[in-house]
Simulated assay, not measured.
Amino acid sequence: MSDWNNFAAPVYLSIQVAVISSIIVFALAVAIAKWMARKRFVGRSVLETLFLLPLVLPPSVVGFILLVWLGRRSIVGRAYEWFVGQPIVFSWIAAVIAAVVVAFPLGYRTIKAGFEEVDEELEDSARALGASEWQVFRYITVPLASRALLAGYILGFARALGEFGATLMIAGNIPHRTQTIPTAIYVAVDGGNLSLAWMWTFAMILLSFLMLFVANRYSK
Score class of each variant (00 low, 15 high):
residue 149 L to S: 03
residue 139 Y to G: 06
residue 124 D to M: 10
residue 112 K to C: 06
residue 218 Y to K: 09
residue 127 R to Y: 06
residue 149 L to Q: 03
residue 132 S to N: 01
residue 132 S to A: 05
residue 122 L to I: 14
residue 112 K to M: 14
residue 185 I to A: 01
residue 113 A to H: 06
residue 195 S to T: 14
residue 109 R to E: 14
residue 175 P to Q: 05
residue 21 S to W: 00
residue 34 K to C: 10
residue 34 K to S: 12
residue 143 P to F: 13
residue 46 V to D: 06
residue 50 L to K: 05
residue 103 A to D: 04
residue 99 A to C: 14
residue 203 A to D: 07
residue 29 A to V: 06
residue 39 K to V: 13
residue 108 Y to S: 05
residue 13 L to E: 00
residue 31 A to Q: 12
residue 74 S to G: 08
residue 52 L to C: 05
residue 123 E to P: 01
residue 165 G to K: 05
residue 60 S to V: 15
residue 61 V to C: 05
residue 208 S to K: 01
residue 126 A to S: 09
residue 34 K to H: 14
residue 204 M to Q: 10
residue 157 F to E: 02
residue 80 Y to M: 07
residue 34 K to L: 13
residue 95 A to Y: 04
residue 166 A to G: 07
residue 170 I to A: 04
residue 67 L to M: 14
residue 212 L to M: 13
residue 194 L to A: 09
residue 177 R to N: 12
residue 196 L to C: 00
residue 104 F to Q: 02
residue 97 I to A: 03
residue 219 S to R: 14
residue 139 Y to K: 12
residue 153 Y to I: 06
residue 183 T to F: 03
residue 216 N to T: 11
residue 159 R to S: 10
residue 5 N to W: 10
residue 212 L to Q: 11
residue 30 V to T: 11
residue 48 E to L: 08
residue 103 A to V: 08
residue 147 R to S: 13
residue 6 N to T: 12
residue 181 I to T: 04
residue 48 E to A: 05
residue 8 A to L: 15
residue 174 I to K: 08
residue 15 I to C: 13
residue 40 R to A: 14
residue 212 L to T: 09
residue 194 L to K: 03
residue 126 A to V: 09
residue 101 V to M: 07
residue 23 I to M: 14
residue 179 Q to A: 07
residue 133 E to H: 11
residue 176 H to A: 14
residue 151 A to L: 08
residue 75 I to G: 02
residue 127 R to L: 08
residue 48 E to T: 09
residue 67 L to F: 15
residue 107 G to P: 00
residue 172 G to P: 10
residue 81 E to H: 04
residue 159 R to W: 05
residue 63 G to T: 01
residue 93 I to K: 07
residue 148 A to R: 02
residue 162 G to R: 02
residue 85 G to P: 02
residue 125 S to R: 04
residue 80 Y to W: 15
residue 61 V to T: 08
residue 86 Q to C: 01
residue 54 P to M: 02
residue 5 N to S: 11
residue 209 F to Q: 08
residue 170 I to T: 06
residue 146 S to Q: 14
residue 135 Q to A: 14
residue 111 I to V: 13
residue 116 E to Q: 14
